[in-house]
Design a protein around this nucleic acid. Structure first.
Length: 448
RNA sequence: CGGAGCGUAGCGCAGUCUGGUAGCGCACGUGCUUCGGGAGCACGGGGUCGGGAGUUCAAAUCUCCCCGCUCCGACCA
């Protein structure tokens, strides 16, 4: 992609409305534009990041045996009346009336829809277990949206729903998602820590929030230091095998959010040198809720004994759009964003220091073509801005690798490659640079 | 919803108290010089001052009513 054709409205100054760094940088980098309170347009650069995050989530869901569907954003109120939630859900639910005066709503979640799909289609225990997920825009009319996409009203969410015959089987479904989440966030360069969450009326130990640590996190969290460097399930994890050891390893050490924090237990179980108290951002939440929806909505299958059994369900959310902000919170410096390679909008930036010069233009075109042929996302700055401005823009938007092509270097057949994170620079021939870059992108594109 | 504050050009702001017909920086356009970490000079384009209704000879400025946005709190992926 050439910058001259692209749409990248960067801002030199920070808009006043943005309080936290991820929001400021997303606005400055031309990733998003606010349309109304808590509602954003995703501009090309932001959309690229969103799609990459979404794709990682999708790949790990698929790997764990979940199956993608897409459910509507607009749902009929009658479905929610079945579960009893139409009345129970507060003002966060955006209620709509159509031309026939029928009550509709913009879905804040999809338990009712998925349950109705499942109950109408599956009648036998032989079809269990199943896990269906979708990645869809949700709307919750938060009283006070803030922090940009971290806490918007409209947000992109992956929500998965598992269906099992027994609570024991549901536990396995839960563990699959537990392991998949560890991998999902690790692949984005985030260290997530599962923390015990409130299970409400269901009880039990099957509810975890996945938290990443960041100074601007919304809530205070407490955990054992070891969890920050916990082992990520490998890519060849057998999701049909015994996942209990993974969950045990991650849940046997203390980790709790403010709500669930027990200072006495924390002090007793965690040596003071290993006690971590930090701010955290919730990026995922998994939850076993049993028959909460299946019972009122009459979602049953026939078991091996011939009896009808109400299915046991769980739901598993990932805040996809929130992750874009969360990743920035965890990866930035004074100059701007520092994208981890797997979610970078472009993996490589080629900076033409003298656009219009035949020699530099030629080298840039060659780099562009060969890198794209190698399957790499590359953005060529072919504008006639001055060098300083180009460097500042690329640093701001956080492209991990930069190739600087200037007239002096081109005369001696060299270009300069630079790492956004380390700042290290190296002069190489264009051919060598391509090889290095391709190798480096492929090495860092997959983190787990 | 309770508390606080802000709406003036794409972004950041001044002007409002004390009414007199809109300004600065950045960005943008043109020209010249410059050109490896956000250049300089010159000229220039762009604003129904959030909306409506009042007061007045005259309203960005005063009054009233709406709307939007931000921050603190309760709520949340």
């Amino acid at each position: 992609m050439y910058l001259s054709r692209y749409f990248l409205p960067v801002l030199r100054e920070t808009p006043k409305e943005a309080e936290i760094v991820s929001h400021q940088l997303m606005l400055r980098a031309g990733m998003i534009k606010q349309c109304a309170a808590g509602i954003y347009s995703w501009l090309p650069l932001g959309l690229r990041v969103l799609k990459k995050i979404e794709q990682i989530v999708r790949e790990e869901q698929n790997r764990a045996g979940a199956v993608e569907v897409m459910m509507p954003t607009i749902q009929p109120a009658d479905l929610w009346r079945e579960s009893g939630r139409y009345e129970a859900y507060g003002k966060e639910m955006l209620r709509i009336t159509d031309r026939h005066k029928r009550d509709l709503l913009f879905g804040p979640t999809a338990e009712e829809v998925i349950t109705s799909i499942f109950r109408d289609s599956v009648k036998s225990y032989k079809d269990l277990p199943k896990n269906l997920y979708n990645i869809q825009w949700k709307f919750r009319d938060e009283i006070r949206p803030r922090f940009g996409v971290m806490r918007g009203r409209e947000f992109l969410m992956k929500d998965a729903y598992s269906f099992d015959l027994s609570p024991e089987a549901a536990r396995k479904s839960y563990q699959r998602m537990f392991a998949a989440y560890l991998r999902t966030f690790a692949r984005m360069g985030l260290r997530s820590i599962p923390m015990k969450a409130d299970t409400g009326p269901i009880g039990g130990d099957l509810s975890h929030e996945f938290i990443i640590l960041a100074e601007t996190g919304e809530s205070q969290v407490f955990c054992h230091r070891d969890l920050i460097e916990g082992e990520i399930p490998p890519v060849d994890t057998d999701y049909d095998g015994d996942l209990e050891p993974i969950m045990t390893a991650w849940t046997s050490k203390y980790a709790a959010t403010e709500d669930m924090h027990d200072p006495a237990r924390f002090a007793a179980e965690v040596p003071s040198s290993a006690q971590v108290s930090a701010r955290g951002i919730e990026v995922g939440h998994i939850f076993f809720f049993g028959r909460k929806y299946s019972k009122p909505m009459d979602c049953r299958v026939q078991g091996p004994d011939g009896q009808m059994a109400t299915v046991e369900m769980g739901s598993y959310g990932v805040g996809v759009s929130r992750l874009a902000g969360a990743i920035i919170e965890a990866n930035h410096d004074d100059n701007g964003i520092r994208w981890p390679m797997p979610v970078a909008p472009f993996e490589v930036a080629v900076i033409n220091l003298k656009a219009g010069d035949g020699a530099t233009d030629g080298v840039c075109a060659e780099l562009h073509t060969k890198l794209e042929q190698a399957g790499i996302d590359v953005l060529v700055d072919d504008s006639d801005e001055r060098a300083g401005g180009k460097f500042a823009t690329m640093d701001l938007i956080g492209i991990p690798l930069q190739i600087v092509v200037g007239p002096k270097g081109v005369k001696s057949n060299t270009v300069e490659i630079k790492s956004r994170v380390s700042g290290e620079k190296e002069s190489l021939t264009p051919e060598t640079a391509i090889n290095h870059i391709v190798a480096e992108v492929k090495r860092t594109r997959i983190l787990a």
